[in-house]
Amino acid sequence: LRQRHVACLARSERGLGFSIAGGKGSTPYRAGDAGIFVSRIAEGGAAHRAGTLQVGDRVLSINGVDVTEARHDHAVSLLTAASPTIALLLEREAGGP
Protein backbone atom coordinates (compact mmCIF):
# COMPACT_ATOMS: atom_id res chain seq x y z
CA LEU A 1 0.00 0.00 0.00
CA ARG A 2 1.32 3.42 -0.96
CA GLN A 3 0.40 6.69 0.68
CA ARG A 4 0.75 10.08 -0.97
CA HIS A 5 1.29 13.31 0.87
CA VAL A 6 2.43 16.86 0.22
CA ALA A 7 5.40 18.42 1.98
CA CYS A 8 5.99 22.18 1.87
CA LEU A 9 9.48 23.30 2.80
CA ALA A 10 10.79 26.82 3.34
CA ARG A 11 14.34 27.13 2.09
CA SER A 12 16.83 28.18 4.78
CA GLU A 13 20.26 29.74 4.30
CA ARG A 14 21.55 26.15 4.18
CA GLY A 15 19.04 25.10 1.52
CA LEU A 16 16.34 22.46 1.83
CA GLY A 17 18.31 19.97 3.89
CA PHE A 18 17.74 16.84 1.87
CA SER A 19 19.26 14.97 -1.05
CA ILE A 20 17.68 13.01 -3.87
CA ALA A 21 18.89 9.98 -5.78
CA GLY A 22 17.69 8.25 -8.92
CA GLY A 23 16.03 9.65 -12.01
CA LYS A 24 16.97 9.10 -15.62
CA GLY A 25 20.64 9.52 -16.43
CA SER A 26 21.86 8.58 -12.95
CA THR A 27 22.38 5.52 -10.80
CA PRO A 28 19.00 4.08 -9.73
CA TYR A 29 18.10 4.43 -6.05
CA ARG A 30 16.24 1.13 -6.37
CA ALA A 31 17.32 -1.45 -8.94
CA GLY A 32 15.12 -1.34 -12.02
CA ASP A 33 13.30 1.82 -10.90
CA ALA A 34 14.06 5.17 -12.58
CA GLY A 35 12.07 7.09 -9.96
CA ILE A 36 13.51 9.90 -7.85
CA PHE A 37 13.75 9.25 -4.13
CA VAL A 38 14.75 11.10 -0.97
CA SER A 39 18.17 9.62 -0.20
CA ARG A 40 19.33 11.69 2.78
CA ILE A 41 17.93 14.17 5.28
CA ALA A 42 20.37 16.57 6.93
CA GLU A 43 20.18 16.82 10.71
CA GLY A 44 18.71 20.20 11.67
CA GLY A 45 17.94 21.17 8.06
CA ALA A 46 14.62 22.44 6.71
CA ALA A 47 13.37 18.96 5.77
CA HIS A 48 14.41 17.53 9.15
CA ARG A 49 12.64 20.32 11.06
CA ALA A 50 9.48 19.95 8.95
CA GLY A 51 9.34 16.23 9.73
CA THR A 52 7.34 15.48 6.59
CA LEU A 53 10.02 13.70 4.54
CA GLN A 54 11.50 10.27 5.08
CA VAL A 55 14.45 8.62 3.40
CA GLY A 56 13.00 6.35 0.72
CA ASP A 57 10.05 8.61 -0.15
CA ARG A 58 9.43 8.73 -3.91
CA VAL A 59 9.24 12.28 -5.28
CA LEU A 60 6.31 12.56 -7.71
CA SER A 61 6.30 16.31 -8.33
CA ILE A 62 8.25 19.43 -7.38
CA ASN A 63 6.24 22.69 -7.30
CA GLY A 64 3.62 21.08 -9.53
CA VAL A 65 6.10 19.75 -12.10
CA ASP A 66 5.79 15.99 -12.63
CA VAL A 67 9.18 14.32 -12.05
CA THR A 68 8.08 10.67 -12.22
CA GLU A 69 9.94 10.27 -15.55
CA ALA A 70 12.43 13.11 -15.08
CA ARG A 71 16.18 13.17 -15.45
CA HIS A 72 18.11 13.52 -12.20
CA ASP A 73 19.65 16.85 -13.25
CA HIS A 74 16.21 18.28 -14.13
CA ALA A 75 14.87 17.40 -10.67
CA VAL A 76 17.93 18.98 -9.03
CA SER A 77 17.43 22.18 -11.04
CA LEU A 78 13.79 22.35 -9.89
CA LEU A 79 14.89 21.96 -6.27
CA THR A 80 17.63 24.59 -6.57
CA ALA A 81 15.42 27.16 -8.34
CA ALA A 82 15.07 30.56 -6.67
CA SER A 83 11.67 29.81 -5.13
CA PRO A 84 11.74 30.40 -1.34
CA THR A 85 9.34 27.50 -0.73
CA ILE A 86 9.13 24.08 -2.33
CA ALA A 87 6.01 21.92 -2.52
CA LEU A 88 6.71 18.22 -2.97
CA LEU A 89 4.23 15.47 -3.76
CA LEU A 90 5.64 12.32 -2.19
CA GLU A 91 4.69 8.67 -2.21
CA ARG A 92 5.61 6.37 0.66
CA GLU A 93 5.30 2.64 1.03
CA ALA A 94 3.03 2.16 4.02
CA GLY A 95 4.94 0.01 6.47
CA GLY A 96 4.05 -1.35 9.86
CA PRO A 97 1.55 -3.99 10.96
Rank of each mutant, 00 (worst) to 15 (best):
A47K: 05
D66Y: 04
A81R: 12
A42C: 10
E43G: 06
D66H: 02
L9R: 00
A21G: 10
G95L: 11
T85D: 10
A47Y: 06
R40D: 15
V65N: 09
A7Y: 07
G64Q: 07
L79R: 00
K24W: 11
F37W: 04
A70N: 01
R4N: 06
K24H: 09
E43R: 10
A31N: 15
V76T: 09
T68Y: 04
D73V: 06
D57I: 05
G23Q: 01
G32R: 07
E91W: 01
T27S: 06
S39I: 03
T52K: 11
V6S: 08
A42H: 13
I41A: 00
V55Q: 05
A42V: 13
R14V: 10
I41C: 05
D33C: 12
T52E: 12
L53F: 09
F18E: 01
V38L: 04
I86V: 15
G25A: 05
S83H: 10
V67L: 06
E91V: 02
E91A: 04
G15F: 03
R2F: 12
D73P: 03
R30N: 08
G64K: 06
L1E: 14
G25D: 13
L60A: 02
D73W: 05
G17F: 03
I41N: 03
R71V: 06
A82T: 10
E43Y: 11
I36Y: 02
L89E: 15
I20L: 08
R58A: 03
V59S: 00
T52M: 11
A47N: 06
G22K: 00
A50H: 08
R30L: 12
S77T: 14
P84G: 15
E91R: 00
H48D: 13
G44T: 09
V55C: 08
E13N: 12
H5T: 09
I20E: 00
T52F: 07
T85H: 10
S77P: 02
G51H: 05
E43A: 09
A34T: 15
E69R: 11
K24A: 10
E13T: 12
G96V: 12
P28I: 02
I36N: 00
A47R: 04
L79A: 02
V55H: 00
G15E: 08
L88R: 00
V38T: 01
G32F: 09
G22D: 03
E93A: 09
A82P: 14
E43C: 09
V38W: 02
A42I: 14
G35S: 08
H48C: 10
R40Y: 15
A21Y: 06
G64C: 05
T85G: 07
R92H: 03
I62E: 03
V76C: 10
L60S: 02
A7P: 01
V59N: 00
C8L: 15
A21L: 08
G22C: 03
S61V: 07
R40Q: 15
A70V: 08
V65G: 04
E91L: 03
E43L: 11
V67A: 04
V59I: 12
G23D: 02
V76E: 11
V59A: 01
G44H: 10
L88K: 01
V6D: 05
Y29C: 06
G56N: 04
L88F: 03
I36C: 00
A87W: 10
E43Q: 09
G17Q: 06
D33E: 15
A47L: 05
G35T: 01
R58V: 02
A34V: 11
V6G: 06
V76W: 11
D66T: 05
V76G: 04
S12P: 08
L78K: 03
G56S: 04
V67C: 08
H5E: 11
A42M: 14
L9G: 01
I20H: 00
L88Q: 00
A46N: 08
E69K: 12
S19T: 15
S77F: 10
L79Y: 00
L16E: 03
G95W: 09
S61T: 14
G51Q: 10
A7V: 15
G64S: 06
S26Y: 06
I20M: 08
L60R: 03
L79H: 02
D33F: 09
H72C: 10
T85N: 11
V59T: 01
E69H: 15
A81S: 13
R71F: 11
D66A: 05
G15D: 09
A47V: 08
G96A: 13
A82V: 09
I86C: 15
E69S: 12
V65S: 09
P84W: 03
H5I: 15
G17N: 03
G95E: 12
A7T: 11
A31C: 13
L79D: 03
I62F: 02
P97N: 13
G17R: 02
S77V: 09
S39F: 01
R58S: 03
L88W: 01
E91N: 02
D66E: 04
G17L: 01
R58N: 01
R14D: 12
R30M: 12
G96R: 12
S39Q: 07
A47I: 06
V67R: 00
L88V: 08
E13M: 05
A47E: 07
S61N: 11
L89R: 07
L88M: 10
L1M: 15
T80D: 14
G25F: 07
T52Y: 05
G35L: 00
V76D: 07
P28A: 09
A81M: 11
V59M: 05
P97F: 10
G96L: 12
R58D: 04
Y29P: 05
H48S: 11
G35V: 00
S61R: 14
T80P: 00
V38K: 00
I86R: 00
K24E: 12
P84C: 07
L78R: 03
H74P: 00
L1T: 12
G56I: 00
G22P: 02
L16P: 11
L53Q: 01
V76A: 10
D57R: 01
G44S: 07
L79T: 02
A50E: 15
E93I: 08
Y29G: 07
F18D: 01
S83D: 14
N63I: 00
E13C: 07
G15V: 04
R40L: 10
G64T: 04
I62S: 01
A21S: 14
K24F: 05
V76K: 12
V55K: 05
A94T: 14
G45A: 07
V38N: 01
G22L: 01
V38Y: 00
A47M: 05
T52P: 04
A82W: 08
P28G: 08
A82R: 12
T80H: 15
S61F: 07
A42F: 14
A31Q: 15
K24M: 12
G17H: 02
A42D: 15
G15K: 06
A7G: 04
R2T: 11
S61H: 09
S12N: 15
E93W: 07
C8S: 10
E91D: 07
R40G: 14
D66L: 04
I41F: 03
S12Q: 12
H74C: 11
G15R: 05
G22I: 00
G64M: 05
N63E: 05
F18W: 02
V6Q: 10
A50N: 10
A87F: 13
E43K: 10
P28H: 10
L79K: 03
R92N: 03
G22Q: 04
H5G: 06
L78N: 02
H5W: 08
G15L: 04
S83E: 15
A75D: 00
C8N: 15
V55E: 09
R40A: 14
G15S: 09
L78Q: 04
A46P: 14
S61D: 05
R71E: 15
P97V: 12
A50Q: 09
E91G: 03
G44M: 06
R58M: 03
A81H: 10
G45F: 06
L88N: 01
D73H: 07
G44R: 06
G51W: 03
G95N: 11
S61P: 02
E93Y: 07
Y29E: 07
G23T: 00
L16S: 04
I62N: 04
H5S: 09
V67F: 03
A31L: 14
S26P: 03
E69F: 07
L1W: 04
R2N: 06
S26H: 10
V76S: 09
I36G: 02
A47D: 06
